[in-house]
Lab assay of single mutants.
Amino acid sequence: HMTFVALYDYVASGETDLSFKKGERLQIVNNTEGDWWLAHSLTTGRTGYIPSNYVAPSD
């Protein structure tokens, strides 16, 4: 899985979304859904959809 880092805080707007904090590391499970990607937080262990423009590839 690709690892990304959150650029901003995001508060989930629905049950399927994943809240995260700036700097949180996320594994992308599925990024074929356009602007919303299914991600797994390496910080909280939770999985949900995130806005793709809130994250950047982590080196």
Rank of each mutant, 00 (worst) to 15 (best):
24 E>A: 02
15 E>H: 12
42 L>N: 05
34 G>A: 14
13 S>Y: 10
36 W>S: 05
38 L>E: 05
3 T>K: 05
46 R>E: 09
42 L>E: 08
51 P>Y: 05
48 G>A: 04
46 R>G: 08
4 F>N: 01
41 S>Q: 05
21 K>G: 06
41 S>F: 01
29 V>C: 13
55 V>N: 03
1 H>N: 14
49 Y>F: 11
47 T>C: 12
28 I>Q: 03
40 H>R: 15
33 E>H: 14
2 M>N: 11
23 G>Y: 05
6 A>M: 06
13 S>E: 13
37 W>S: 03
2 M>W: 09
37 W>P: 02
11 V>N: 11
17 D>E: 15
57 P>V: 10
49 Y>M: 11
16 T>M: 14
45 G>K: 07
51 P>C: 06
41 S>I: 03
11 V>R: 07
43 T>R: 10
13 S>D: 08
14 G>F: 10
15 E>C: 11
5 V>F: 08
47 T>W: 13
24 E>W: 03
51 P>A: 03
29 V>P: 05
29 V>M: 15
18 L>K: 01
58 S>M: 15
21 K>P: 01
10 Y>Q: 01
20 F>D: 00
5 V>Y: 09
4 F>D: 00
46 R>S: 07
44 T>C: 03
17 D>W: 08
3 T>Q: 09
29 V>A: 07
30 N>A: 11
7 L>C: 08
16 T>I: 09
45 G>E: 04
8 Y>A: 09
27 Q>A: 11
45 G>R: 06
33 E>N: 15
21 K>Q: 11
5 V>C: 06
8 Y>L: 08
14 G>V: 10
5 V>M: 07
31 N>A: 14
32 T>D: 13
5 V>E: 06
31 N>P: 12
43 T>S: 13
26 L>P: 00
39 A>S: 03
13 S>M: 14
1 H>E: 12
1 H>F: 14
53 N>Q: 11
1 H>L: 12
47 T>Q: 09
53 N>H: 13
30 N>C: 11
19 S>W: 03
58 S>E: 15
50 I>T: 01
36 W>R: 11
21 K>T: 10
9 D>A: 05
6 A>E: 00
1 H>S: 13
5 V>A: 04
8 Y>W: 13
59 D>K: 10
57 P>S: 08
34 G>S: 14
44 T>V: 02
45 G>H: 15
4 F>Q: 03
35 D>I: 11
57 P>C: 07
4 F>A: 06
6 A>P: 01
53 N>E: 10
44 T>I: 02
28 I>E: 01
16 T>S: 13
59 D>V: 12
41 S>W: 00
58 S>T: 13
49 Y>K: 07
53 N>P: 06
13 S>Q: 15
52 S>W: 09
17 D>Y: 14
22 K>C: 06
2 M>K: 12
50 I>H: 00
57 P>Q: 10
21 K>A: 10
12 A>G: 11
28 I>A: 08
9 D>K: 02
51 P>F: 04
22 K>F: 05
8 Y>Q: 09
41 S>C: 04
42 L>W: 07
47 T>P: 01
28 I>D: 00
52 S>M: 09
10 Y>M: 03
24 E>N: 02
30 N>F: 10
14 G>Q: 11
41 S>M: 02
34 G>L: 11
18 L>P: 05
13 S>C: 14
12 A>M: 04
45 G>T: 03
3 T>R: 06
11 V>H: 11
18 L>V: 06
59 D>T: 14
43 T>K: 11
13 S>L: 13
28 I>R: 06
39 A>M: 10
31 N>V: 12
18 L>R: 02
15 E>I: 10
59 D>W: 14
42 L>V: 08
11 V>P: 05
35 D>P: 11
18 L>F: 08
53 N>C: 12
50 I>D: 01
58 S>P: 10
21 K>L: 11
37 W>F: 06
48 G>Y: 03
20 F>A: 01
52 S>F: 08
23 G>R: 02
40 H>G: 03
19 S>P: 06
27 Q>G: 05
32 T>P: 09
2 M>Y: 09
19 S>M: 06
55 V>P: 02
53 N>Y: 10
15 E>T: 13
23 G>V: 00
31 N>I: 13
28 I>T: 03
2 M>F: 10
23 G>W: 05
57 P>W: 08
29 V>Y: 13
1 H>Y: 14
25 R>S: 08
17 D>I: 08
25 R>I: 15
55 V>W: 04
8 Y>K: 08
40 H>K: 15
15 E>Q: 11
22 K>M: 08
7 L>I: 10
50 I>V: 11
42 L>G: 04
54 Y>H: 08
50 I>P: 00
50 I>R: 00
54 Y>I: 06
41 S>V: 02
17 D>H: 14
17 D>M: 13
29 V>H: 15
7 L>F: 03
31 N>Q: 14
26 L>F: 15
20 F>K: 00
28 I>P: 09
43 T>A: 12
38 L>I: 07
38 L>G: 01
14 G>T: 13
30 N>V: 09
15 E>D: 14
18 L>S: 03
49 Y>C: 09
36 W>Y: 09
49 Y>N: 05
32 T>L: 12
39 A>P: 00
53 N>A: 14
32 T>K: 11
19 S>R: 04
54 Y>C: 07
16 T>R: 13
3 T>S: 08
58 S>I: 15
37 W>V: 08
29 V>E: 07
22 K>G: 03
37 W>L: 07
6 A>R: 00
12 A>F: 02
14 G>C: 15
4 F>H: 06
48 G>R: 01
36 W>A: 04
35 D>Q: 12
9 D>H: 04
18 L>Y: 03
47 T>K: 08
46 R>L: 14
3 T>C: 10
30 N>R: 08
44 T>W: 02
14 G>S: 14
55 V>H: 03
21 K>M: 11
4 F>C: 09
19 S>T: 09
27 Q>D: 07
10 Y>A: 01
23 G>D: 05
47 T>H: 07
57 P>E: 09
25 R>H: 12
55 V>F: 07
37 W>H: 02
52 S>T: 06
23 G>P: 00
55 V>C: 05
4 F>G: 03
18 L>G: 02
35 D>S: 12
27 Q>W: 15
48 G>C: 01
56 A>V: 14
53 N>T: 12
13 S>F: 10
11 V>L: 08
38 L>C: 08
54 Y>P: 01
23 G>K: 02
6 A>V: 10
38 L>H: 04
29 V>S: 07
59 D>P: 13
38 L>S: 02
11 V>K: 09
48 G>M: 02
39 A>V: 12
9 D>P: 04
56 A>H: 08
1 H>V: 12
14 G>M: 10
11 V>D: 10
47 T>S: 11
49 Y>S: 04
52 S>V: 07
48 G>N: 01
12 A>V: 04
16 T>D: 14
22 K>E: 06
13 S>G: 09
44 T>F: 02
15 E>V: 11
16 T>P: 05
30 N>Y: 09
24 E>H: 04
51 P>N: 06
20 F>Q: 00
26 L>G: 00
41 S>H: 13
35 D>R: 09
11 V>E: 13
22 K>V: 07
40 H>S: 09
34 G>E: 11
26 L>N: 00
3 T>D: 08
56 A>E: 11
48 G>D: 01
49 Y>G: 01
56 A>D: 06
46 R>I: 07
47 T>N: 07
14 G>W: 08
49 Y>Q: 05
18 L>I: 12
26 L>W: 02
24 E>G: 01
14 G>H: 13
12 A>I: 03
35 D>T: 12
54 Y>N: 03
7 L>M: 08
19 S>H: 04
1 H>P: 13
3 T>G: 06
52 S>A: 13
31 N>W: 14
40 H>C: 13
10 Y>N: 02
11 V>T: 12
12 A>T: 04
38 L>Q: 04
9 D>M: 02
56 A>F: 09
19 S>F: 05
52 S>H: 08
18 L>D: 01
50 I>A: 02
37 W>C: 04
24 E>Q: 04
33 E>R: 13
31 N>E: 11
25 R>N: 08
39 A>F: 02
10 Y>V: 02
8 Y>N: 06
52 S>L: 04
13 S>P: 07
48 G>F: 04
44 T>L: 04
9 D>C: 05
2 M>G: 10
39 A>W: 01
43 T>Y: 08
2 M>D: 10
51 P>K: 06
6 A>Y: 00
48 G>V: 02
31 N>R: 14
10 Y>D: 00
54 Y>L: 12
